[in-house]
Amino acid sequence: MSSTASVQRRFQRFTPRQRFVRWVVLMLSVAAITVSIRHVEVIPEFLYDAPEQLVDLLNRLWPPDLEYYPIAVHEALLETLHIATLGTVLALFLAVPVGLLAARNVTRSTTLNWLAKLILVSSRSVNSLVWALLFVAVFGPGAMAGTLAIAFRSIGFVGKLFAEAVEETQVGPIEALRATGAPRFSVLVKGYWPQVKPAFWSIALFRWDINVRESAVLGLVGAGGIGVALDASLNLFYWDRVATVLLSIFAVVILAELAVTQIRQRII
């Protein structure tokens, strides 16, 4: 009797089966990491002289060629901001209808919900740079392709978060407005919109913030903005100009961040 009691009282966090599974998962992880390292082919010589190369690069970057800023950076920087802003605005217009279709409490058709979700997922699964490549192929290089790339990448992000905000609204007021005989669009405007408005503007600002950063690299594939200046300087090994471009991007991102924080505090 006493021996069975002590057996029952022995504490084990995991059952033998669980322990076996955990061991297998550990072994598989080790194997996966080993295979990855071999595949990447880390060349030890390159790894060893990395600090030296870093110092060398910094020497080439410093001092930045500030003369270059008015020549090519300023215009490109403004173009980047325009791409980010226009792209975000376009995305907002496109994302709201798709988001409403995806929200199950507004659109009571599973087929439409799935269709909308498919659109949102496709938009997100393609990177901005890839979208940019596609639009450069269609519209040729320039800011137009960049703006569309930003917009199409943002639809998925904005639409998904907007749909979630819509689904989290309280049903009570919606029911009350339906009971007054309000048409659907009035219920959207007076019942849903006041409830999702803070979330919507918060999402829009957040996305704009991200888009400022993303549009800075679109020029690498020819989609306009400051990335073009960066690409040109990199290709010609003007490292001091590269430094100017990088500093400008850094400054703009910081400013965008500050602006967004300020505005968000005001509206919420």
């Binding site: 009570g172 029911e175 219920v187």
Partner: peptide
């Protein structure tokens, strides 16, 4: 219709909630 939880649109002003009665 009058509801237990009032079901007002919380973020709208009182007067606009009244005007919501005219939405139909």
């Amino acid at each position: 219709m009058v509801f237990q939880e009032y079901n007002l649109v919380e973020r709208l002003s009182v007067i606009e909630n009244l005007l919501c009665g005219r939405l139909g």
